[in-house]
Amino acid sequence: MTIKNEPLISVIVPIYHVEQYLRRCIDSIIGQTYKNLEIILVDDGSDDGCPAICDEYARKDNRIVVIHKDNGGLSDARNVGIDIAKGEYLAFVDSDDYIHKDMYRILMKELIKSDSDVSMSTYKYVYDGKPDEQDITYEEDYSIETMSGIQAQYSYYSDDKKLELTVAWNKLYKKELFSDLRYPKGKIFEDEFTTYKALYRSKNICLVNLPLYYYLQRNDSIIGVMNGKRNAKVVDGYLQRIEFYNKENEDELWCKAVMHCIHMICYLKSCNKELDSSNADIFETYRKDLLKLICNNRSAYKKLSKCQKVEIRLFKISSSLYYQVWNKYKKS
């Protein structure tokens, strides 16, 4: 495939205070074997060396577009990139991560072959202070899984690919999926609010079982400091998903989302026993919000199993008591 008949991919890179990692990230994108790229570097008000690095790369590669903006957060930076993207396809790379040289060549090939709206890869953890991963050449015998948008929702609750199905960065999307879809400003765990909606509206989704994305683990990253009140905010995304399934009349998915949310509220609360009373109130607020959503959808509630209804009654009495019982049952 030559660049003349390669569809244009817009790769959006939100950038903030990642001077140490940025060159590696950009190098991995400009070194792709798939060449027809629009590389959108969104400097989100970074006051380190990142703005100068972005401008330096733009002078060397005419595929690079640089946006300098006031700090607005990861979601805002991604949205700015989506708004100006010219490609038929979108991709996202976090600026402290990097990607395999064949990532977009393989994802595009399999997306077209399977007539999908989204293709995605698996990922590999990489660690601060460790040597960079060296790309290997993959043969053509890797496995492919295909699923519909609805099947992807069920897979989120039933298999071990929860992260692959949640994050923005391991995927290649048809841009039309984002025609009216943007990331929520001011939210952390923004992917929990957005990716499932793009997948839901997809006709087909293709999963390439190759670790083409290198996901950096940093102690100072959002994930690296997942504790306390900040960690609990992921529940906002779970609650929104319940409302989404209700609106779409997806009763079975609504039931799965409700039970998942109950389990996560209780689990997160148990992991954050060090919270003071003012911060601990966030879990009580989430419990009340969830119970309100359950009460507002009686038709879907009827489709819960007897066991699940018992769980909800126990959760209604006390989330701490519920978790003790549930955890003991799970261990047994």
Rank of each mutant, 00 (worst) to 15 (best):
V310K: 14
Y57H: 11
L293N: 15
L41F: 00
I29L: 14
S318D: 13
Q32E: 07
L239C: 06
S148T: 15
M1Y: 07
L172V: 10
Y21L: 01
N327W: 02
E19M: 00
Y57E: 13
N272F: 03
V118F: 00
D117E: 07
E38G: 05
N71T: 12
S46T: 13
C266Y: 02
V325W: 13
S143R: 14
K197H: 06
Q20M: 07
I205D: 14
T194D: 13
T166Y: 03
I53F: 02
S278M: 10
K247A: 08
I40K: 02
K197C: 03
Q217A: 08
I223E: 11
F315I: 11
K185F: 00
L210T: 14
Y157A: 05
I12V: 13
K130C: 09
K331D: 12
Y98W: 03
V167L: 15
D289G: 01
M147N: 08
K124W: 00
E110Q: 14
I282A: 05
D159I: 15
A168V: 10
D55C: 05
S277E: 15
K256H: 12
E190P: 00
G237D: 05
L37I: 02
Q308H: 13
R23E: 14
L321C: 13
Y286E: 03
I3Q: 14
D97F: 01
E284M: 10
K86Q: 14
I282P: 07
G72T: 12
R298I: 06
C206I: 11
D289Q: 14
